[in-house]
Amino acid sequence: MCSSKGNSLSTNPAIYNRAHHAFAVFTACATLVVITAGALVTSNDAGLSVPDWPTSFGYLVKVPQFVGGVRYEWSHRMVAGTLVSLTLAIAVWTLLVERRRWLRWLAIGAFCTVIAQAILGGLTVLLFQPPWISTAHATVAQTFFCIAVSIALFTGKKWVEEVPRVEFDSRRPSLITLTLLSILVLYLQLILGGMFRHHGMSWWPHVLNAVTVSFVLAWTAVRAISVYSNIEAVRRPAIIMLSLLITQLCLGFTAFLTRVAWGRDTAQPELPMVVSTVAHVAVGALLLATTVVLAIQVWRHVPVAFAERVPQAQRNASPA
């Protein structure tokens, strides 16, 4: 049951622009760097080492005495500031070169998100890190990462130039439902992890929900890999998602051991805890973004077959 026609996301006119796409990829990579830098701040308990905001010890950009917690907090502020500039640039550039209206709106959305994120970062410093604000800061960070990765995906040569291979999905629950459910449970996992990390909640809701996350993501990945192995755009993110899930579970257990089991009575953040928790945050961001990419590709390549929506002739069409 294949057709050569894509759905609405791919029907808009678009021209591949290599430099624009390269810049979008660079911005997405820079986002992961900022997320890692932010995770280093939390794991080193350095969030309040610079008490003022938006200035840092009275200056916007002046290197302070580069010691202790200041190294993490100040660096995080600087790479985050650079990311705001990169996002402004990609938004302006997208408005200049992009014909797809929805992508122009996505770029504007990205800029609004990065501004909201900067304000949340400031609020958490000025209000002394209330768990909900710090968790919102962690959640919006990963949301922005997903947007940046999506922009990179939508501006890519493959997305713009390929005629998508489409297979209609008649299974229930559909693969798109499973991918959306995966995103939902991952968000819940991110919020629960953030609340624990920022002292607003115990660790067990996060660990309990990890069971749900594992089940839903494994189901999604197995369905995608086994049924749609012939669609590379679906198979690839599904395999990456599964590998990241396994890595993330191992890192989660290590983070639990170093933070909760062994880390209670340490006098200061110790290296094994810092490394495992920062890796857990970074891989968590990669896992969420990969799942979003999978959902987008499933939306494009494996739409749901509604009897009334898909004429029989089209469902019987041969692969492109």
Partner: peptide, 13 residues
């Protein structure tokens, strides 16, 4: 943008 940000703000040190 980064250069503009270099301007010194009120010193709260």
């Amino acid at each position: 943008l980064l250069t503009m940000a270099c301007n010194k703000q009120s010193n709260t040190e």
